[in-house]
């Protein structure tokens, strides 16, 4: 068992109060598994990623544990986490393209980063991995501003995995890429796993079709909580949570046009995480909501490895 997250609660402190961005998340990730993480914008996906690697000043660990390869991650202790970053857990942040230092050429940046981790660059290996994501070696001699959004994104991907972390969290890494590069990068990520550069992966994305292609399991979050988790096929073909179903219904496949058939998003908006309502958080928007939904639905394993938090699943 590679990653176990239990009852994880991480909040942001703000002047108005606590934003409960992760409000009791539990899940597991096996060795070699790729977990796709989807959910409405603002539901806590990036917060989950950041919690496993570096909490920013306003985040705080309210409860729960994270165990990686049998060792507890000291997620609340920024200094102790240094031993784990890059080597055990690595994050490719959302908007990684703006995370690059603009004053350094890529080669120098890689060298400095590795030096700060006490190792040196294996140039051949670096180029081999760049090649795997379709980047020519000339990119090393450029400044970030001289690269397109997608090129920077792929460069960060290579850098983040150079030290072969056990767990890689990829936050929206393919969102900025055209479909053919996306396909290449998705295959490269699978390759990273198959070549053992990374053991397991959390792949955060809004693209359900793409996740379905590369993830073994898909986890759907809603408003800081787990809504549903199952094998990728089950989520796509036989989802049980009303939110998952509506999300799948709002996907445009190639061929659907506004002028001919208007797709609809899910009416309403998610609850504020500052003071989330009691009971099921999807209640206001759920077509199936009933009286029992005033009580919070527990996460139940309704079939082997299929977890759902809904009274009516």
């Amino acid at each position: 068992m590679s990653l176990q997250v239990s009852e994880l609660r991480v909040h942001y402190r703000t002047l108005k109060g606590e934003v409960r961005a992760l409000d009791g998340m539990s899940f597991e990730l096996a060795d070699g598994e790729i977990l796709g993480l989807v959910g409405e914008s603002g539901c806590g996906k990036s917060t989950l990623g950041k919690s496993l690697i570096r909490m920013d000043g306003r985040m705080h660990h309210v409860g729960g544990r994270v165990v990686l390869d049998g060792r507890e991650l000291p997620i609340a202790d920024d200094r102790k986490m240094n031993d784990f970053r890059f080597r055990e857990v690595s994050l490719i942040p959302q908007y990684a393209m703006s995370a690059l230092n603009p004053t350094r050429k890529i080669r120098r940046m890689v060298t400095e980063l590795l030096r700060s981790r006490g190792t040196t660059v294996d140039a051949a290996e670096l180029e081999r991995r760049m090649n795997q994501v379709g980047l020519p070696r000339e990119v090393l001699d450029r400044y970030p501003i001289e690269l397109s959004g997608g090129m920077k994104q792929r460069m960060v991907m290579v850098i983040s995995t150079l030290l072969d972390p056990s767990l890689l969290i990829a936050d929206e890494v393919t969102s900025a890429l055209d479909v053919s590069t996306q396909k290449a990068v998705a295959r490269a990520l699978l390759g990273f796993r198959d070549s053992g550069y990374v053991k397991s992966m959390i792949f955060v994305t809004h693209d359900l079709a793409l996740t379905h292609h590369i993830a073994d399991t898909i986890m759907v979050m809603y408003a800081g909580k787990l809504a549903e988790k199952a094998s990728a096929d089950v989520i796509v073909k036989a989802p049980r949570h009303p939110y998952t179903r509506l999300l799948l219904d709002s996907l445009p496949e190639v061929g659907v046009r506004y002028a001919e058939r208007r797709l609809e998003g899910i009416a309403g908006s998610p609850p504020s995480l500052l003071d989330p309502p009691k009971g099921c958080r999807f209640r206001d928007r759920c077509p199936l909501a009933g009286d029992e939904c005033a009580e919070e639905p527990p996460v139940v394993e309704i079939a082997p490895a299929h977890h759902v938090a809904c009274w009516k699943a």
């Binding site: 989807v38 409405e40 809004h206 509506l246 996907l251 506004y258 797709l263 998003g265 899910i266």
Partner: peptide, 20 residues
């Protein structure tokens, strides 16, 4: 420029319908 790429499927459709 790629304004909907970071939005979930449902919000994305709302934004596209708004543009339409």
């Amino acid at each position: 420029d790629e304004i909907t790429s970071m939005l979930d499927a449902s919000t994305r459709i709302d934004v596209l319908n708004l543009l339409a």
